[in-house]
Nucleic acid binder design. Structure first.
Lengths: 217, 217
DNA sequence: CAATGTGAAGTACTTCACAGCC
DNA sequence: GGCTGTGAAGTACTTCACATTG
């Protein structure tokens, strides 16, 4: 019942972190539907995992449930949000203002209260100065001062694959330490920089492989 | 050296399938740079995994390497493509023609030779009839005949979260058996239907959690 | 008595280490 | 000599089963 939630144990599996995102998604919908309490099994089922998995995942961060009852939806959302560190705003910048970039700008502003894109950049000189969703497209040369002024840690790369490494180098040079990369390219970065890759084809390949295997040929 | 590549062992880890996508990505770039042979260690490093991991992953599908030498880049690409089942075209349909939908239409046509979006749909009556990148936006009521006529197995959902379950129901009803869902919602589907979720926030949460933990506070 | 929190058991995946081959 | 392919060893994650608690 304290205000802060410190991890109880040293190591928390990455798999757990990724699942918390799903729990939060489902909890938001339960909350919208005015559900006040949920127990691990129904929550787990909605998320496509086992009840014991949910309980173990949550237990890494604290004791959020009530035995014999379940979890308070609202307070569990708050606990997860706090555990993930998304209970305050994370400013971000985006580089690569194509279709995907535009889609991300929209998607983030619509669905993610904790994240906010502060400025957008493009390596293509013809795009610089354009106005996109109220943002002015800036030159990559302005990234360092932007990062410093706004205390930005996270950069999003939505440029074409040919330009992704250049975009990445700009970000790293400016002191960005976390990158979300949508370009279908592996990035070379120093060990101090963490990259998360979003690769739709990975998911498509997985679907196709399982279609081919599952065999209804 | 035969034309078909049958899995040697029964069970192939999903993790392996997901990595093959990365290997393919890196191999494409090596091929573009006229590299003809690569051994497991450099390939692994470019992909952010161990050499032994690459060798084990590939060995699930056959013996593609030459001892003392490495792997032929071109033929390995072919082998992976064939192993994944993406050596022929997979027709798909897309439902939800917003920003994200548009971005996906582009992204798929630009980067994925094996996949092709055959038709696009939207639940919003005001969008039906619009022309987007040369496609006419169709009504969901036309999905079943489209699926049957074009032998489509895969549907992509890029609609708003509120409409995602409806979109999904349309797809399932029409006989779609594999869904790539971009909406931040868990879908209820019969066991026979496989869903892959693309959730950017999952990746962002992971970055943030590791930033918060890694502690440079 | 229903449902959490948690060691202990089980499973899945990764890495090691080296025999086999080019 | 260098690098693959692969059992065996190790690690990370998941599930079980139940004591614990409101």
């Amino acid at each position: 019942m304290s205000e802060t939630y410190e991890p109880k144990s040293k190591h928390i599996p990455q798999a757990t972190i990724k699942r918390l995102s799903t729990y939060l998604q489902v909890l938001k919908n339960l909350d919208r539907d005015k559900v006040e309490v949920v127990s691990s099994n129904p929550l787990a089922e909605a998320c496509g995992v086992q009840g014991s998995q949910v309980r173990k995942d949550l237990a890494y961060f604290g004791e959020f449930g009530i035995r014999g009852v379940g979890y308070q939806v609202k307070s569990l959302m708050q606990s997860i949000t706090s555990s993930l560190g998304i209970d305050h705003e994370w400013p971000m910048l985006l580089i690569g203002v194509g279709n995907l970039g535009r889609a991300m700008i929209n998607h983030v502003s619509r669905h993610a209260s904790a994240f906010s894109i502060k400025a957008i950049f493009d390596c293509d000189p013809f795009k610089i100065g354009d106005s996109v969703y109220g943002y002015e497209v800036l030159s990559p040369s302005e990234i360092p001062q932007c990062v410093e002024k706004m205390h930005i840690d996270i950069g999003i790369i939505t440029s074409r694959p040919e330009r992704a490494q250049t975009a990445c180098d700009h970000l790293v040079h400016a002191g960005i330490t976390a990158i979300l990369n949508f370009a279908p390219v592996r990035l070379k970065v120093p060990d101090s920089v963490r990259v998360e890759y979003v690769d739709f084809f990975r998911n498509l390949y997985s679907l196709v492989f399982n279609l081919s295997q599952g065999g209804k040929s």
